[in-house]
Simulated assay, not measured.
Amino acid sequence: MAADQWEIVVVRHGTRHARRSDVYMNYGFYGEADDDFTVDYYLWVLRNGEQIIHVDTGYSQAGAAKRGRTVLIDPLEALRRLGASAESGNPLVVTHAHYDHIGNVAAFANSPIYMSGAELEFWTSDIATRPLFSHYGDQDEIADLLAAEHEGRLVAFSGRLELSPGVELIEIGGHTPGELVVSVQTRAGEIILAGDAAHFREELDRDMLFQSMADVPQSYRALDWLRSQTDACIITGHDAGELDRFTPLDGALAGHAAVAGRAP
């Protein structure tokens, strides 16, 4: 497949109604009035002809119920409707190991899984069970990653990894110790899936950090790096406006998905 023929299906599977003070770190420092805020939850599917790469798996029904998140469409059902079911054995990229990004990993029982080694090491350490981190983690889901490692299906790397021509995984850290971003070459140019290196466009525009960051200085550096990629389109991890930026997907996923990377 040509390296620049990828397209990205952005799937919104969940949502949350919050307050600005719920999502931005030390919100009072900005001297602004509080207000309502919407957090959306996504997973992404890269397509190049018959080749498919999954990026993250969304949250599970149990993970949503535990934290009061709304399920708009079950992530596994969304993938089935897209013709990219979890059982198909396509590669899976884990940008980071929070509950809303690995909630359905067990369903990808035939897939090779790619993630940062620093990320896996962190979530299998004692620090991962401390309250400031454990809210976003789930030890049962981490166990699913360890089972994949035991089966020889998990590839833990550091730095950069070319997963396929036109798709590069880049370890950037900050939000979590091994947060990844994904660079994808498309007909419309380079697109970078920021994962949670940038949850919202406002983070990029105003240097406002999400309320949970494992490494605050590195989180700022990650935003600096994303902003330096001036020729790339950045897709954030949770901004409620992401679907509106791209071509709506018709059919069984109408209202839940859009396609990025098609030629203008």
Rank of each mutant, 00 (worst) to 15 (best):
R47L: 05
T57F: 04
D224R: 10
E32F: 09
V216C: 09
Q185G: 06
R160I: 06
A214F: 15
Q229W: 01
H17G: 10
A128K: 00
E242R: 06
D74F: 01
G68N: 07
R187Y: 03
D74M: 04
I52L: 02
Q211W: 10
V184C: 10
G237I: 02
L145A: 08
T230D: 03
H96K: 02
A78T: 12
H101F: 06
A222C: 08
G195I: 09
I8L: 13
I142A: 12
M115N: 08
G58F: 12
A214P: 00
F108A: 11
A197I: 00
R262G: 12
D40Y: 08
D231G: 12
E149S: 14
T230K: 08
A78E: 07
R12D: 06
Y59W: 09
E162Q: 14
L72Q: 04
E168F: 02
T176S: 08
F210D: 10
G159M: 08
A257P: 04
N90G: 03
R81W: 09
G137V: 00
T230E: 06
A143W: 02
A64E: 11
G251H: 07
T129S: 14
G189E: 06
L204Q: 03
A106V: 09
W225D: 01
E190P: 02
G174L: 08
G117C: 08
Q61F: 10
L204E: 02
S228A: 11
P264D: 15
I73K: 09
L72E: 13
A156W: 06
H135F: 15
T95H: 13
N90A: 15
F210H: 11
E242F: 04
A222T: 10
D231V: 00
S60Q: 07
G174M: 05
D231P: 00
E50I: 02
R160E: 14
A84G: 11
I170F: 03
K66M: 02
T124K: 04
D144I: 00
R47C: 00
A240F: 09
A118I: 08
E149A: 15
A198P: 07
V55C: 14
H54N: 08
G103Y: 05
W123V: 14
A194I: 00
F157W: 04
A118G: 01
W6M: 05
G159D: 10
I8K: 08
G89H: 04
N110R: 10
S134Q: 12
L146I: 03
I52R: 10
V71D: 01
Y24C: 01
P112Q: 01
L204D: 04
D207W: 13
S228Q: 02
I234S: 03
A260Q: 07
D244V: 09
E87P: 06
W6F: 10
S21A: 15
S116A: 09
G63D: 11
E7A: 01
A232H: 01
L243N: 13
L79A: 03
A18F: 07
V105E: 13
